[in-house]
Design a protein around this nucleic acid. Structure first.
Lengths: 122, 122
DNA sequence: TCAATAGTTCATAAATTCAGAACTAATGAA
DNA sequence: TTCATTAGTTCTGAATTTATGAACTATTGA
């Protein structure tokens, strides 16, 4: 299988980062990968924000994150190990990822408070 | 003519902001509006980064920026006065716009240094 | 009333995204 | 080896989004 493409850090563009993170599923994936102690495989995300994501779609989302330079994916046996490249990006664009993740957190908190997206009491 | 739509600040979403600013023309417009002492009309941007932008396209770009909550547009006689809403957004998502504009500046500087996008010596 | 200016809307072609189906690659068991 | 399983990618067509020329609207000034 052909090796996955990863841009070198100097080829990472702000446009690509912003585009990648303008999708709520991709932000959720990145936040999870950043926060996790160990690398994450794709199948951990077949459910995101209470929504089922088909695995072909998920694969495209991971590709988008990889090609934007936000994560690194390494095939380890049968599964993929995904790790964040945020430290490199922090070097190149200081404060960018933090500000975006932070803004997303503020938004989620506000939405919870105002009662949007609340799970129905089953 | 029907009045232009502007979202209230609590309806502004991170996704919409990031999507709006994932386009280089729109970032350039926003940066210009933020940096300008007075409000800017659309026709100031028929050329952006040495590229001609058709006015219908430009109109859509301004609409995208308005509907993302990044700028406010007011019709003043025959032309439109566009002003930034960054102060409001700073209240809601501290540091976000600054980090993005900053990252774009770093990228432009790097590109100039590495010789990309250099105008041919005519 | 007419022409000029500034910008929007419409229509359609081009590009992008989504998701099911088929495929590939690695592993483990028989 | 061969088969089944698991994890993920690629293919393909449908749906959505974007870009832009052409037509349109609104305001101003002559």
């Amino acid at each position: 299988m052909r090796p996955l493409f990863h841009p070198s850090i100097e080829d990472v563009s702000v446009e690509a980062i912003l585009h990648a993170l303008s999708d709520p599923v991709r932000v959720a994936i990145l936040v999870e990968i950043v926060g996790a102690a160990c690398s994450q495989n794709c199948s951990n995300f077949l459910q995101v924000n209470d929504k089922d994501i088909p695995k072909s779609t998920l694969s495209q989302h991971f590709k988008a994150l990889r090609e934007a330079g936000l994560i690194r994916g390494e095939r380890k046996g049968v599964e993929m190990h995904n790790t964040s490249r945020c430290a490199e990006i922090e070097q190149r664009f200081p404060g960018l990822i933090l500000a975006i993740v932070n803004a997303h957190n503020i938004q989620s908190r506000d939405r919870r408070r105002s009662g949007r997206k609340r799970k129905p009491i089953s």
